[in-house]
Design a protein around this nucleic acid. Structure first.
Lengths: 354, 354
DNA sequence: TGTTAGCACTCAACTAATATGAGTGCTAAC
DNA sequence: GTTAGCACTCATATTAGTTGAGTGCTAACA
C-alpha cells in the first residue's frame, strides 16, 4: 500500500508520457478503448505490445487510465486528460487561411458589438466543431451615449438607449413628436456619459423634477416613461448569453443516446445554468474543466474550455467550448486563443482607446 | 380494378369515419400501430374486433391506413391524416388560463416587435411542445421613423434606423458629435416617413448633394456613411427567421435515431431552407402540410402547420409548427389560431390604426 | 345482410445459447 | 529490460427458438 501510494505520486518517465500521449491522441480520434497492439503498431515507439501492456498497467495503477472491462483497451481517466492538457498536449497551429477568414468575418462588415460576440461564438464553433457558449460584455463600464424617444405609432413610443450597443423598447403611451424631442433632450442632458451603475433611482427623480413644469406632459405618462427608462438602464447589466452549434453534440458517439443528448440540450436552453457555468470558470488565460471538475451533474462526461476576453486588460466576457471529455484540446485551445485575441483587438478598437 | 377504383373514391360512411378517427386519435397518442382489439375496447363503438378488422381492411384498401407488416396494427397514411385534418378532427378548446397567460406574455412587458414575434414562436412551442419557426414581419410597408448617428468612440459612429424596430450598425469613421447631429438632421428630413422601397440610390445621391457645401465633412467619410445608410435601408426587407424549441424533436420516438434528428437540426439551422419552407405555405388561415406534401426530402416524416399573421388584413409574416406527422393537429390548430389573432391585435395596436 | 366468434397464420420482438475476437495478464525465455 | 506465447475474460455478434399481438378468413348467427 505504501508502495502503491508512492507510485501514484511518482513522476512519469518519458516513455510513460509518450505512451499516455499516444493513447489519448488515439482515443480523441476514435472514442474507442485503445489497445496495446494499436499503440505498438501505429505509433513508432519501437516497443512490442507486451511492453506497452506493462506500461499501461502502470499508468492505470497511477490513475491516468481506466479499463472499462478486463478484455477492453484503456480509456483516459479525468486525471489522464488533466495531465495531457497540462503537460503533454502539443501546440496546435491553425492554418493561415483559417486565421485570415476569422479576421475577416469578425471585423469585416460587422454591425454591432452584441453581434460581434455572437459571431465569435459562431466562429469558435465552426473552428472546433463543438458547441460554444459566449457571454456578451458585462456592462458596468458601459457609458450611455444617447437616449431617445421616437413615436412609432399614435399610441406608442420607442425608447432607445444607445451604449456600445442599442436597447429599445416600446412604451404604450400617446406622446407627440415634439414632446418626445423635448423629453429626450432632458434625458440626454442628465444621462449622457453616465454608466449604468451611476444611475440610481434618485437620478430619475431628479429628472422628473426637472421635467415637471418645463414640459407639459401628463404625470401618468411621465411616470410611465421614466419607469421604463429606469428599468431599461438597470437591465443594461444583464449578461446576454448565446449558445451556438448545440446540434454538434449529436455527432459524437458519447451522445448517441438521445436521452442524454436531450438532457444537455435542456441544460443549454436554460440561460441561468449557463451563466452560473461560465461564471465559475477561471479568470485568466485559457481554462479547462474536465469531467468531474464540472460542478454540474449533467456535464460529468463533458469538458468545458473557456477563455476571457477583455478590455483594458480587464475581463468583461467569456467564450466557452463544450464537448466530450475526449475533445481535441489542442485545437480548441488554439482556436480560443486566437479568437479571444481578435475580440480584444476589436473591443479596443471600438472603445476608442486604440 | 374498376371496383377497387370506385371504392377508393367512395365516400366514407359514418362508421368508417368514426373508426378512422379513433385509430388516428389513438396513434397520435401512442406512436404504435393500432390494432382492432384496442379500438373495439377503448372506444365505445359497440363493435367487435372482427368487425373493426373488416372496416380497417376497407380503410386500408381506400388508402387511409397502412399496415407496416402483416401482423401489426394499422398506421394512418398521409391521406389518412389529410382526411382527419380536413373532416374528422375535433375542435380543441385551449384552457382559459393558457389563453390568459398567452395574452399577458405577449403584450405585457414586451419590448420590441422583433421580440414580440420571437416570443410568439416561443409561446407556440410552449403551448404545443413542438418546434416552431417564425418569420419576422416583412417590411415593405415599414416607414422609417428616425435615422440617427451617434458617436460611440473616437473612431466609430453608430448608425440607427428606427422603424417599427431598430437596426443599428457601427461605422468606423471619425465624426464629431456636432457633425453627427447635423448629418442626422438632413438624413431625417429626407428619409423620415418613407418606406424602404421608396428609397432608391437616387434618394441617397440627392442627400449627398444636399450635404456637400452645407456641412464640412470629408468626402470619403460622407460616402462611407451614406453607403451604410443605403445598405441598412435595403436590408430592412430581410426577413428574419427564428426557430424555437428545436430540441423538442428529440422527445418523439420517430426521432430516436440520432442521425435523423441531426439531419433535421441541420435543416433548421439553415435559414435559407426555412425561408423557402415557410414561403411555400398557404396564405390564408391555418394550413397543414402533411408528410409528402412537404417538398423537402428531410421533412417527409414531418408535418408543418402554418398560420399567417397580418396587418390591415395583409399577411406580413408566418408562424409554423414542425412536428411528427402524428402531431396533435387539433391542439396545434387551436394554438396557432389563438396566437395569430393575438399577434394581429398587437400589430394593429402598435401600427396606430387601432 | 351485417355482425361476430373462432381459428390458423404471420412476423416483429424478445430470449437464450453459442461463437467470435479483441484485448488482457502472466510466465518464461532472450 | 524486453518480448513471444498462451490461457483467460468478456463485450459484441450471431443464431435459433419462443412469444404474442395482430391479422384474414370462414362459418354461424340475428
Amino acid at each position: 500500500m505504501a508502495y502503491e501510494r508512492m507510485r501514484t505520486h511518482m513522476d512519469l518517465n518519458d516513455r510513460k508520457k509518450l505512451i499516455l500521449q499516444a493513447i489519448i491522441d488515439e482515443y480523441i480520434g476514435s472514442a474507442e478503448p485503445v489497445g496495446s497492439r494499436a499503440i505498438s503498431k501505429k505509433h513508432e515507439l519501437g516497443l512490442s505490445s507486451a511492453t506497452i501492456r506493462n506500461e499501461m498497467a502502470d499508468l492505470e495503477e497511477m490513475g491516468y487510465l481506466i479499463q472499462p472491462h478486463t478484455s477492453a483497451g484503456r480509456v483516459p481517466s479525468d486525471a489522464g486528460y488533466r495531465f495531457y492538457v497540462n503537460s503533454l498536449m502539443k501546440r496546435y497551429q491553425l492554418g493561415v487561411e483559417a486565421i485570415e477568414r476569422l479576421r475577416d468575418e469578425l471585423s469585416g462588415r460587422l454591425g454591432i458589438l452584441d453581434k460581434a460576440v455572437k459571431r465569435a461564438g459562431y466562429l469558435a464553433s465552426a473552428l472546433t466543431d463543438y458547441t460554444t457558449v459566449v457571454s456578451a460584455p458585462v456592462s458596468e463600464r458601459v457609458e450611455i451615449k444617447k437616449v431617445d424617444l421616437v413615436p412609432v405609432s399614435e399610441e406608442s413610443v420607442m425608447l432607445l438607449i444607445v451604449t456600445r450597443t442599442v436597447r429599445s423598447r416600446i412604451i404604450k403611451t400617446r406622446l407627440s413628436f415634439e414632446k418626445c424631442e423635448a423629453l429626450a433632450a432632458i434625458l440626454n442632458a442628465k444621462l449622457r456619459d453616465k454608466t449604468a451603475d451611476e444611475i440610481t433611482f434618485n437620478t430619475i427623480s431628479d429628472i422628473e423634477q426637472e421635467i415637471i413644469g418645463r414640459i407639459d406632459v401628463e404625470p401618468k405618462v411621465l411616470i410611465n416613461v421614466l419607469h421604463f427608462v429606469y428599468e431599461s438602464v438597470s437591465e443594461l447589466d444583464d449578461t446576454e448569453i448565446y449558445v451556438e452549434n448545440a446540434k454538434s453534440i449529436l455527432q459524437y458517439p458519447e451522445y448517441r443516446d438521445v436521452d442524454k443528448a436531450r438532457e444537455i440540450f435542456s441544460f443549454l436552453d436554460d440561460k441561468s445554468n449557463l451563466k452560473r457555468l461560465i461564471s465559475e470558470t477561471g479568470n485568466e488565460g485559457i481554462n479547462a474543466k474536465i469531467g468531474d471538475e464540472n460542478d454540474s451533474e449533467i456535464l460529468q462526461d463533458c469538458s468545458l474550455v473557456t477563455v476571457n476576453y477583455s478590455l483594458d486588460g480587464k475581463a468583461i466576457g467569456k467564450l466557452g467550448v463544450i464537448g466530450p471529455k475526449r475533445m481535441d484540446y489542442a485545437r480548441v485551445f488554439a482556436s480560443l486563443d486566437l479568437i479571444s485575441r481578435e475580440i480584444d483587438r476589436l473591443l479596443e478598437y471600438f472603445s476608442g482607446n486604440g
